[in-house]
């Protein structure tokens, strides 16, 4: 491990707010991945759905997931900006 990277890790270990930000970031990334997976599943179901009601429900759910992901991406960017600044 390079010296700078090692120092950064040690610094993070003692910096409580930074550690929390890091945990939040990881949590957000996990959430985003899960939502993306769910969206893909629904997309696949939508392609196979015949009934109009089912199609509408799936379209709504996909739109909700997209909106949720947009919010999470914005939150993640804020966190990254906070860490860098």
């Amino acid at each position: 491990m390079k010296y700078k990277k090692l120092m950064r890790r040690i610094q993070t270990l003692f910096d409580e707010p930074e550690r929390q930000r890091q945990q939040q970031r990881k949590k957000l990334q996990r959430l985003l991945k899960k939502l993306r997976h769910k969206q893909q599943q629904l997309q696949h179901k939508l392609e196979q759905a015949d009934r109009q009601d089912d199609q509408q429900e799936l379209r709504d759910k996909i739109a909700l997931l997209k909106q949720q992901r947009r919010k999470l991406v914005a939150a993640l960017q804020d966190l990254k900006a906070g860490s860098n600044g």
């Binding site: 939040q24 709504d60 909700l64 909106q67 949720q68 919010k71 939150a75």
Partner: peptide, 20 residues
């Protein structure tokens, strides 16, 4: 346990309903 800002709110639903 995260920020409550992450969850969808009334403004989001309004926006989505308009888009639809």
């Amino acid at each position: 346990t995260g920020d409550p800002d992450w969850s969808l709110n009334d403004e989001d639903y309004r926006q989505l309903a308009r888009d639809g």
